[in-house]
Design a protein around this nucleic acid. Sequence first.
DNA 1: TTGCACATACCAACTAGTATGTATACATTT
DNA 2: AAATGTATACATACTAGTTGGTATGTGCAA
Lengths: 196, 196
Amino acid sequence: MNATDTRERILGRMFQDIHKNGFQGLRADRVIADLGITKGALYHYFPSKDAIGLAVIAEIIEPSYLAFFRSLEQAKGHPIDLLKAHLQELADKASPDDIYLGCPLNNLVQEMSPLNEDFRQRLKVVMDGMIHYSTRALERGVAQGQVKAGTDCAAVASFMVAGMEGAYGVAKVQKSLSSFHRNIQQLLNYLEMFRA
Amino acid sequence: MNATDTRERILGRMFQDIHKNGFQGLRADRVIADLGITKGALYHYFPSKDAIGLAVIAEIIEPSYLAFFRSLEQAKGHPIDLLKAHLQELADKASPDDIYLGCPLNNLVQEMSPLNEDFRQRLKVVMDGMIHYSTRALERGVAQGQVKAGTDCAAVASFMVAGMEGAYGVAKVQKSLSSFHRNIQQLLNYLEMFRA
DNA sequence: TTGCACATACCAACTAGTATGTATACATTT
DNA sequence: AAATGTATACATACTAGTTGGTATGTGCAA
């Protein structure tokens, strides 16, 4: 077991615990007991609980969320189809547990934005990134005549993300995967409005 | 100062503290210090912290959210106009602080649904109510030829609520009232799709 | 022999909850 | 009308358990 492994094992479990309990509900003791390590190891890699949260955002959440949206820069194809395919994939791949625990990004946004400005800014970078790359894809679509002329691409991209997060939230309280599917379907219908 | 007043003062402050800090972040000591009362008063009215949270949902959150949606049962007028007017009013009346702290209902849903089944069920009743009364209003609209025939009213109502909560979430991390307005505007555009 | 990667033991601060006391209003009895 | 009982509405003081964080020690590889 080398050093990098331990650090990543810690981060991974912290992410899981935060996903279920929230950052304020995260208990370092619970995680280290789970991993069979001690506080020495934990505080060797992270100076504080806040640092753990920020590392989870930067090293786990941000990469996993932005991977697709960054890829839009090089992607060929109709932007609305690309966005719809991504949303469809989210819906298809979602397990009941994913729905019950909610979107990790959204969870942290709701909990931490008013409490910790560092958290808010890091989370904002992720959501802004999702919106930014979607906006650019739609704008290229307008230029190529695939998306209706006059479309407010930034507003559509922003609402797409909002609708996605909202779909997670409603499904979460209803504990219903099919609710998530229905709402994602409505979001797809919304996007279709802007096809040229 | 009579007894009812004290109980309601406690609940009101608890609501505010939960709104900002979340239920797990709620500190009873902080609230009673704020109110200038003592633990004796608090535990005279509420047997536990959980009971406080559930009372806040039942006595503050549920009435304030369901008032409008229940009123749809007796309302005259085009259902899409009624729903749009309500969303527009939410946007118009929202203060920067409302946006920064987020939607109290959504906050609790995200935080507590996976942690406490009592909370989840109480919160679900509220959200289901919002969706239910909106669905019925749209269905009456279909019957009266105001809403497009064949509209999946339950799906539209559900996504309207999802879009609303999502708009709160995105605006919260962006700390931006105008972001909220833009997203609500897109939600209004979405609803317009279903006008007959 | 120096520094990394941990382990062990410990602590101060906090936090929900409790046990107990008391002042006051109101009803009941005498 | 006076005395007495009783329930309400708190206040005070305390505790047991938890939690993030620290101080210090140790094995080992380079």
